[in-house]
């Protein structure tokens, strides 16, 4: 029989795959959690994974052993007809039942633990849009998009709301995921051990640019977080007329940008992301493009072209208009 050798090849391939899994850094991996909630989920994963791996190895070796042990030889007579074996039957039934029970109990515990409301959290309301995230801090009066900031070492409670399609909010290294559903408000909480930047992603298929609905979480020291809040609350100044930024400021209203976007003190649109401090972010358009003047030019030239399905239309802007608008956006720090 070829089978035993085949299994060996499969095992070697499996070990190779594990090497692949461990070799590179993975910014979104759940296997290196950076907070207590992530660790809870990771320890549940580790526990069930090793049980499952043991079952996998035992079953595969059982198959190989039986196939080898009773490999075909000629001239075997019809075997004696054995009808049942009570002890073996009971073992065969009890072992899977017991294993499933062992796996199910920590699942029970973890689900209850994760359902608890955290103490004294920073509260953030998350609204899922196609294809970007809106964050409101009701306690601070701050609204921002795609990049969420909170102090490390403190609980954060996200309240999830949907307005268009169903999305799902996931920052793998900090917590589990939860669907963002129109018509139902849900909550998810997490905590980061220490300051750092964590990537996240929409994980419920939401349309053409689902793959580009990313997010970034900044866990900061309390002082940095307070400074960030203060900066976000500031009303941006108006650029002087006659400069490119000043022309861009005028275009912002003329071209209708203000109808969809809020800039504090200028406009109150709520269709697109709040732009009051857009240039303080590191990326834009669902955390897809790095925040550089060149990328902003590319974006304004044809938003649905670079991000299919984007609700921002191609405004048919001229090259000069784009330059001026980018200059204005750069003042919104």
């Amino acid at each position: 029989m070829r089978n035993p050798r085949r299994i060996w090849y499969a095992l070697v391939a499996g070990i190779g795959l594990l090497a692949v899994a461990c070799a590179k850094h993975a910014p979104q991996t759940t296997l290196k959690p950076e907070g207590p909630v992530g660790r809870k989920i990771d320890s549940l994963f580790t526990f069930t994974f090793w049980i499952a791996a043991a079952v996998f190895v035992l079953v595969e070796f059982g198959v190989v052993y039986l196939v080898w042990r009773y490999r075909h030889r000629d001239d075997r007579p019809e075997p004696a007809q054995v009808h049942g074996n009570t002890r073996l039957e009971m073992t065969w039934t009890a072992v899977p039942a017991l294993l499933l029970l062992i796996v199910a109990v920590p699942t029970f515990r973890t689900i209850f633990e994760l359902a608890k409301t955290p103490k004294d959290p920073i509260r953030v309301t998350v609204t899922g849009h196609q294809f970007w995230w809106e964050y409101n801090y009701p306690d601070y009066g701050v609204t921002t998009a795609n990049e969420v900031h909170f102090p490390a070492g403190r609980n954060v409670e996200f309240t999830l709301k949907g307005v268009d399609v169903i999305h799902s909010f996931w920052i793998p290294r900090l917590s589990g995921k939860h669907d963002v559903e129109p018509g139902r408000v849900s909550r998810i909480s997490m905590k980061a051990d220490k300051p750092g930047v964590f990537l996240g992603q929409c994980v419920e298929f939401c349309g053409l640019s689902h793959a580009n609905m990313r997010l970034r979480a900044f866990a900061q020291t309390p002082a940095d977080f307070d400074a960030w809040v203060a900066a976000q609350k500031a009303v941006p100044g108006q650029p002087p007329t006659g400069t490119p930024a000043g022309d861009g400021f005028a275009l912002f209203s003329v071209k209708g940008c203000s109808g969809c976007h809020t800039v504090a003190g200028v406009s109150t649109g709520t269709v697109g992301p709040n732009l009051s401090h857009v240039y303080s972010r590191t990326a834009f358009a669902g955390d897809t493009f790095d925040m550089t003047p060149d990328n902003l030019r590319m974006w304004l030239h044809d938003p649905p072209g670079v991000k299919p399905g984007s609700k921002m239309p191609n405004l048919g802007l001229s090259s000069t208009e784009i330059t001026n608008l980018v200059a204005y956006l750069q003042t919104l720090k």
Binding site: I41, L44, T48, V55, V59, L114, P172, H178
Partner: peptide, 19 residues
Amino acid sequence: LGLALPALAVMYAMGQGGA
């Protein structure tokens, strides 16, 4: 089948929030 069952077990044991 020996591969699929453990993979499904881990997935469902993790609950909806798991990886």
